[in-house]
Simulated scan of single mutants.
Amino acid sequence: MKKFLLGTVGLIALGISAPASAADLAARPYTKAPPMVAAIYDWSGFYVGANGGYGSSRKCFDSVGFVGFPTAAVRDNCGDATGGLAGGQIGYRWQSASWVFGLEAQGDWADLKGSSPSTLLAGVTEHVKINGIGLFTGQVGYAWNNVLFYVKGGAAVVGDHYRTSFTAGDVLISSASETRWGGTVGAGLEFGFAPNWSVGFEYDHLFMGSRDLAFSGPLAPPPVLPVERIHQDVDMATIRVNYRFGGPIVAKY
């Protein structure tokens, strides 16, 4: 009987002490969840890209006499040269907070062509063509993460070719070519769709001013060189794709 009582007391003591031993085990340390990371698109860095689109040039011709024999300007005609263009661009941007600044050079092959009848010479048609466009601009933009709106301005250069012909049979009378410098302003919207890639739309207006140009040809040999004062503006709208070198995002907590 004594042994039975001692055994019972031991079992009760063992049952009481077991929970206490479990409670004495070290608690698992609490680990705080890592903070959320916000990925901010960074527009800084060098980039290269390609563009393509549509252009339109408004040209007006004033007759101002002949070489060595100037006369008062008389309006001849006005016409449009339209067509496609394609080329590339290279530039550098740097970002400060949400503001983005940049420099860019762009060169495009162009096929802007048009013709219009002369109002001074019956049966004569004047043809115009732009075969190349270059832009050298600075940019100022504002970024909403991976969306960038910017304005730009700077210098522009175009390659022009002109010719006059008899309307019947397109027989050449005279021609002239020039490389003309002017100014440009524009605006664009660009979207970063991948770490180093962006796509955008841009519109540019080129102020090419007016310039006197002497024409020569089979039916206008020296010294009989007619001079035309040619006024010119150009509008161009392009889709652009750029690849930017360097780190695409900055992670901030």
Results as ranks from 00 to 15, higher is better:
residue 1 M to G: 15
residue 2 K to I: 14
residue 5 L to K: 13
residue 6 L to K: 15
residue 9 V to M: 12
residue 11 L to N: 04
residue 13 A to N: 08
residue 16 I to V: 04
residue 16 I to W: 06
residue 17 S to N: 01
residue 17 S to V: 05
residue 19 P to D: 03
residue 22 A to K: 05
residue 26 A to R: 05
residue 27 A to Y: 00
residue 28 R to I: 11
residue 29 P to M: 01
residue 29 P to C: 06
residue 29 P to K: 08
residue 31 T to N: 06
residue 36 M to S: 09
residue 37 V to T: 07
residue 37 V to G: 00
residue 39 A to W: 00
residue 41 Y to E: 12
residue 42 D to A: 13
residue 43 W to E: 10
residue 51 N to D: 15
residue 52 G to K: 06
residue 62 D to Q: 14
residue 68 G to L: 05
residue 68 G to I: 05
residue 73 A to T: 04
residue 76 D to T: 14
residue 77 N to F: 04
residue 80 D to P: 02
residue 82 T to D: 01
residue 84 G to N: 09
residue 86 A to M: 12
residue 93 R to Y: 05
residue 96 S to N: 15
residue 98 S to H: 11
residue 101 F to V: 03
residue 104 E to K: 15
residue 106 Q to S: 10
residue 106 Q to R: 13
residue 113 K to L: 06
residue 114 G to M: 02
residue 116 S to N: 07
residue 116 S to H: 08
residue 119 T to R: 09
residue 120 L to F: 12
residue 122 A to F: 06
residue 122 A to L: 11
residue 122 A to C: 10
residue 124 V to R: 14
residue 124 V to D: 08
residue 131 N to E: 02
residue 132 G to Q: 09
residue 132 G to R: 04
residue 137 T to K: 10
residue 139 Q to C: 03
residue 140 V to D: 02
residue 142 Y to P: 04
residue 144 W to Y: 12
residue 153 G to I: 13
residue 156 A to L: 11
residue 164 T to N: 09
residue 165 S to W: 08
residue 166 F to S: 07
residue 171 V to Y: 14
residue 172 L to Q: 15
residue 172 L to V: 12
residue 175 S to A: 12
residue 176 A to L: 14
residue 177 S to F: 09
residue 179 T to D: 08
residue 183 G to N: 02
residue 187 A to P: 00
residue 187 A to M: 12
residue 190 E to Y: 05
residue 204 D to P: 04
residue 204 D to G: 12
residue 205 H to F: 07
residue 207 F to W: 14
residue 215 F to I: 06
residue 215 F to V: 07
residue 216 S to H: 13
residue 218 P to I: 14
residue 218 P to T: 06
residue 223 P to A: 10
residue 223 P to E: 03
residue 223 P to G: 10
residue 227 V to G: 00
residue 230 I to G: 00
residue 231 H to A: 13
residue 233 D to L: 04
residue 233 D to Q: 10
residue 235 D to F: 09
residue 240 R to W: 05
residue 241 V to G: 08
residue 246 G to D: 11
residue 246 G to K: 13
residue 248 P to V: 00
residue 250 V to N: 05
residue 251 A to V: 09
residue 252 K to M: 12
